[in-house]
């Protein structure tokens, strides 16, 4: 029998790492979305929540320590996710150097075929989002209130539009990614498949709607 290659070098190993890191990022995205919904409770509650995030872990940890640890964790997850994605995409491209003149797709979905582009949109968006609402470099009027920065930012329609596009991309990425991750992890079976599909739809819709509700509400004047 053939000598086995090391796990992270194998295509299944890379897929496995993508699935694990994808699910970690999904956890973050879900938590972040729920936190964001505090915007509907007004500036005070929202800013208090932002402060809480900085102070988690006190008194064992210093202010912001936990947040940085979480950020490093997320950064590692994103890094691994992207590295594997690039590596597998290159492998896939190499596997079919000459394409078909005619293609007819029978079973795949728009979401599954656009995972790469969805991922690129999200990566660019994350950079913009950090520059916009975390560091303020891309914000036209950055202040000390997290709530204020958010409302001021979303009042500008091009900014909101960018957020809307990114959230739709996120929804599609999750719709295929969540279901696909369980297949890759081997945690899927015929009995679970329908349930996992349903959960994927629910998560994709809920998270997208949750995120979208904020810029939309700001634009509509519900959040001021």
């Amino acid at each position: 029998m053939n000598q086995a290659q090391s796990f992270p070098r194998s295509s299944i190993g890379k897929k496995f790492l993508m699935a694990i890191t994808g699910l970690m990022l999904l956890g973050f995205v879900l938590g972040h979305m729920i936190g964001n919904l505090k915007a509907f409770q007004g500036a005070e509650k929202f800013d208090a929540y932002a402060l809480f995030l900085k102070e988690v872990g006190k008194p064992v940890l210093g202010k912001g320590d936990f947040l940085w640890m979480a950020r490093l964790g997320l950064l590692a997850a994103v890094g691994i996710h992207i590295f594997c994605a690039v590596s597998l995409t290159l492998q896939n491209r190499k596997a079919r150097p000459v394409g078909y003149k005619k293609t007819a797709r029978e079973a795949s979905t728009y979401a599954s075929r656009t995972m790469l582009w969805g991922g690129i949109i999200l990566a660019l968006y994350v950079i913009y989002h950090i520059l916009h609402l975390t560091t303020g470099h891309a914000h036209h009027d950055f202040g000390s209130s997290v709530y204020g920065n958010m409302v001021a930012g979303f009042k500008q329609w091009p900014v909101s539009l960018a957020y809307v596009i990114a959230q739709i991309a996120l929804g599609m990425h999750l719709f295929h990614g969540f279901w696909s991750a369980f297949r890759t992890l081997g945690a899927n079976n015929p009995n679970r498949d329908k349930k996992l599909r349903a959960i994927a739809v629910f998560l994709a819709v809920a998270i997208t709607a949750g995120y979208l509700s904020i810029p939309v509400s700001v634009m509509a004047g519900i959040i001021q």
Partner: peptide, 9 residues
Amino acid sequence: FGSCTNHKE
């Protein structure tokens, strides 16, 4: 060969 991205094709 390429990798699987669960397209089901």
